[in-house]
Amino acid sequence: MIRLISIVIGLGFTLVVLIAFGTGLANVISDGQFKEATVESVFHEHAHGPEGGFSFEGVLGTWDKQQLQRGYQVYKEVCSACHSLNYVAIRDLGQLGYSEAQVKAEAASWQVPGIDPATGEATTRPGLPTDHFPSPYPNNVAAAAANNNAVPPDLSLITKARHNGTNYVYSLLTGFEEQPAELLEQFPDAKTPAGLYFNPYFANLNLAMAPPLNSDGQVTYAEGNPEPTISQMSADVAAFLTWTAEPKLVKRKQTGWAVLGFLLFATVLAYLSKIQVWSSLKKRDDD
């Protein structure tokens, strides 16, 4: 009787496992993992960073403030024409090594929305360090009208909003290319529509943004900096946008090491205290 019950229980367990396996297989198929290959699945590339990576990567990473300043220059001269940086205050540039006077000068070089005190009408005025970076468009309708019906995203948190964000920004900026001939051979209906641009690092391969960095030397760096190639400018602005999204990244790493050091010290201290306490009790028991 016991053997019969054991067999029934075993069969029941096996049935449950088979049902679970079948359900999982059905979910995988429904998720499209065994569906016919799509143009995105075949030609989409995974993001990568520049050769040598970024200075802030790894547990001992630090900011390269010269690179961040170059990245800010690229944003200001190129990206700010379409993309906002709404969540960053101009005074935060002081963290990049700019002096107080330089921050004030940078703030004054931006035109921010204001109110005419005489008429009460909307106007613009030179920025102050306390202002946030202004949006290039008054609203999303105007932004879409100027960009093929696509609203350019705010870049303040873009590297946190995208998977592998820093490398994604770098790859996207350096990834514009002509649509491969083999793509059209394999997917004849996948031709990039007029007004869009092919980029294998973008989710659906075609985006409304034209290549913003389209030639070496597009931005002129100060003497002593690397040559402003497309790759270098892309890496610099990707680093800058990593800072805007996570300005305390390096500080958090440094704090983590301090916390680990304290915990190690506390652990050793606790162990020595334990030895001291139990040694006296053991000595008393021996007596």
Rank of each mutant, 00 (worst) to 15 (best):
D287P: 00
Y221Q: 08
D64E: 01
P134C: 13
P226D: 00
T229A: 02
M233Y: 04
T23Y: 11
K191E: 10
L260A: 15
T267W: 12
L249P: 00
P117S: 07
P117D: 00
Q276E: 04
F187S: 09
T38D: 05
P134R: 14
N167H: 11
A142T: 02
N140G: 14
H83R: 07
E57C: 01
G52E: 03
E185I: 09
P152V: 06
E51V: 06
T23F: 12
Q66T: 07
N86G: 14
L93V: 00
L93H: 06
V277F: 11
C82I: 07
M1L: 05
P200Y: 07
A107F: 06
L128R: 15
T174D: 02
T159Y: 03
G120Y: 12
L205W: 09
R162E: 15
L241C: 04
Y271P: 00
I29Q: 12
A270P: 01
F240E: 01
G114T: 10
S273T: 07
L213V: 08
F262S: 09
E57I: 03
A144R: 13
A203Q: 15
W110Y: 15
H163M: 14
C82Q: 02
K104T: 01
F265C: 01
S30F: 06
P50L: 02
A181M: 10
Q276D: 02
F202R: 12
K283W: 03
A26V: 12
A266C: 10
R162S: 15
T244K: 05
Y72R: 04
P226Y: 04
V151H: 05
G165Y: 04
Y221S: 04
F133M: 02
T23G: 13
W243G: 01
N225Y: 12
V78W: 06
P138Y: 07
K76D: 09
T244Q: 02
F198N: 07
G58R: 06
L260H: 11
G53D: 00
T14E: 11
G71D: 02
E177C: 08
L249I: 09
S80R: 14
Y87E: 13
S279V: 00
K76S: 11
D92P: 01
V112I: 02
E246F: 07
N206I: 07
G175P: 01
V103P: 06
S84T: 01
E100K: 15
T229N: 05
V259D: 13
P113K: 00
A210T: 07
Y98G: 05
M233Q: 15
M1I: 03
Y170F: 14
G127S: 03
E223M: 05
K283A: 14
D286E: 08
F202I: 14
A190K: 15
D285N: 12
P200I: 01
N147H: 06
A266G: 08
E227V: 10
M1F: 05
Y271T: 08
A108W: 07
H44D: 03
L184I: 10
Y221H: 04
I7G: 00
A245Y: 00
V237C: 03
H132Q: 10
A181I: 09
F176L: 06
P226S: 04
Q179N: 05
V268S: 11
T130H: 06
L11V: 03
L269C: 04
E246C: 02
Y221G: 06
V42F: 11
L269E: 06
V259W: 14
P200C: 05
P136W: 08
G53W: 00
G61M: 06
V219C: 10
